[in-house]
Every structure is written in C-alpha cells, then in structure tokens.
Amino acid sequence: MAKLSIFVPVLLVASFVAYGEAVRCWTCSSDLNPYCNDPFVPSLADTSGLFRLEYCDANTGATYPYLTTSKSACKKQKKYIAGNLVISRGCTWKRQDDYSTACAASSTGANEVTLYCETCEHDGCNGASTMGITMALIMAPLGLLLFK
C-alpha cells in the first residue's frame, strides 16, 4: 500500500508536465475528403494524402505575429461556407499561457458562418471523441484502488 501511495501522486504530477515536442494533429477538410466528416473514422481514410496526422511546429506560421513564444495545438472547426457544412481539422497556434479550448477569433467571409471551433493539445485529439490523457491517468490508479 505504501508503494501505491507514492505512485499515485507521482503519476498525477507527471500528467501535468508539458511535452517538449510538437503535437500531431489530424489535417483534413470534409469538402475535399468525405472521411473528414463526423463521425471521424481514421481507419477508413484513403491514401491520397488528404487525411493524415501532421506534426505541428509552434515556430512556423504562428497566427499571433505579436507574440515571441507560442505553442502548437490541434483545431476542429465546423462552419457553413456558401451554404455547405464543412468540417476542417488541422494545426493552429496559441499563446503559451492560453489553456482554454476556445479558438482564436478569425475573420470570416460574407458566405461563412462558424458553428463550432475547439482546440486541444495532445496527439490526434481533433479526431474522434476520446477520454483525455489526463483523465485516463487519474482514473486508472483510482480504479485500481477501488477494485483491489
């Protein structure tokens, strides 16, 4: 029991440590590839290159030019473009101190209406709904304690 009482806090602290490498995000758009739509099923993807996990690099293409540091994140966005629902997934950049899941404000054209936009910060998180890594790391030791 003493080993478990040390393991759980160490695991919790480790779950909040930031990774030093770029996050990998699904990159696709439903107007170009129907497999990018909801429900999102990566195993059904074609091999045309329109649908892939891409390494996002926080040092290139930052949408915040006034920032000296930014971090990469994944984005999933649903919008109507000229009356058609388009779901896009890809990389975006956020301020280092931004821990929200909200997307940054972006300009939209006259024929565009954004319905939903959310960001996340772990590999493949802009794909199908999954339990977050942090939640899984917290629940696993608790499950072991409860069902011992």
Rank of each mutant, 00 (worst) to 15 (best):
C74Y: 04
N59E: 14
N84M: 13
L85E: 03
C56G: 00
P65Q: 07
K79H: 11
K76M: 12
A58L: 06
Q96I: 12
C91F: 02
T92I: 03
Y66Q: 15
K71V: 07
S107P: 08
Y80G: 02
L67S: 08
I87G: 01
A82C: 07
Q77A: 09
N59K: 10
A104E: 12
T69G: 07
Y55R: 15
G61N: 13
A73W: 01
Q77C: 08
A62M: 03
T92K: 00
A62L: 05
E54H: 11
T69L: 09
T63C: 12
S72F: 02
C56D: 00
Y55N: 14
C91A: 07
S70W: 05
N59A: 14
K71R: 15
A73E: 00
Y80I: 07
S100V: 03
Q77S: 10
N84Y: 14
P65S: 05
Q96R: 14
V86I: 13
S70M: 04
A105E: 14
A104N: 12
A105H: 10
Y80F: 15
K78N: 08
D57Y: 11
T101F: 11
A58R: 10
E54S: 09
P65I: 01
G61S: 08
C56V: 00
I81M: 12
T101V: 07
L85V: 02
Q77H: 07
N59M: 12
N59T: 14
W93H: 14
S70Q: 13
G83S: 07
Y55L: 06
K78V: 04
A104I: 04
D57T: 08
C74W: 02
K79M: 13
W93R: 02
Q77I: 13
K75T: 05
Y99E: 14
Y80S: 11
K94W: 02
A62Q: 10
C103H: 10
Y55F: 09
T60M: 12
D98E: 09
S72L: 01
K75M: 13
T63G: 15
S107N: 15
C103K: 05
S88C: 08
Y55I: 10
Y55M: 11
A73K: 06
K94L: 05
A82H: 11
S72H: 07
C103A: 08
A58C: 07
C74S: 08
T92Q: 00
T68C: 08
I81W: 10
A62F: 06
D97H: 10
N59G: 13
I81P: 00
S106M: 11
A105S: 15
G83W: 03
W93I: 02
G90A: 05
D98W: 04
V86G: 04
A82L: 12
A102I: 07
C56W: 00
C74K: 06
G90L: 04
T69N: 15
N59Y: 13
Q96P: 08
K79D: 01
D98F: 04
A104C: 09
G90R: 03
S72M: 03
Y55E: 13
I81N: 13
W93P: 00
K71E: 01
T63L: 10
T92P: 07
T68M: 05
D57K: 05
G90K: 02
T101I: 09
K94G: 01
Y80D: 06
T92C: 09
D98C: 04
T92D: 02
P65T: 02
D98V: 01
N59F: 12
A105D: 14
S88P: 02
C74N: 02
C91S: 03
K78A: 10
Y99M: 10
Y66L: 13
N84S: 15
T69D: 14
K76R: 15
C56M: 01
